[in-house]
Measured scan of single mutants.
Amino acid sequence: GSPGIQSFLPPGWEMRIAPNGRPFFIDHNTKTTTWEDPRLK
């Protein structure tokens, strides 16, 4: 199987799917959430 997208996120980050189907990202380091992919910064 191919590695999940989770493995490509920075340490402490998690990806979830919102009720509307959009992915969002949780930064457990700062306890914040964002719509922006942290890998694109």
Rank of each mutant, 00 (worst) to 15 (best):
R16N: 04
G4H: 13
S7K: 12
P38H: 01
P10Q: 04
P11V: 10
F8T: 15
G12S: 03
F24K: 03
E14M: 05
K31E: 09
R39W: 07
G4C: 15
W13V: 02
D27I: 01
G12P: 04
F25G: 00
K41A: 15
G1V: 13
P10D: 03
I5N: 13
D27H: 08
P10L: 08
E14H: 04
I26S: 01
A18T: 09
P38D: 01
E36M: 10
N20L: 03
K41S: 15
T30E: 06
K41H: 15
I26D: 00
P19K: 13
T34M: 05
G1R: 09
R22K: 11
M15D: 00
P3W: 08
G12Y: 04
E36F: 14
P3K: 12
T30W: 03
F25S: 00
L9C: 05
G12F: 05
G21R: 04
E36G: 06
S2T: 14
K41G: 15
S7W: 10
K41E: 15
P11R: 11
R16Y: 08
D37E: 05
P10T: 02
R22S: 07
W35T: 05
F24R: 03
P3G: 12
S7C: 15
G21W: 01
A18M: 10
Q6V: 13
F25T: 00
I5C: 15
E36V: 13
N29R: 07
T34Q: 08
K41W: 15
W35P: 02
I26P: 00
F8A: 15
G1L: 11
N20G: 09
Q6N: 14
N29D: 06
S7A: 14
S2A: 14
N20C: 14
P19W: 10
G21P: 11
F8D: 15
F25P: 00
P19E: 08
P38T: 01
M15W: 05
I5G: 14
K31W: 09
P38N: 01
D37G: 03
I5H: 13
G12A: 03
R39D: 02
I5L: 13
W35Y: 09
D37W: 08
G12K: 03
R16G: 06
E36N: 11
R22Y: 08
W35I: 04
P38E: 01
K31T: 07
P23M: 11
G21D: 02
I26K: 02
W13N: 00
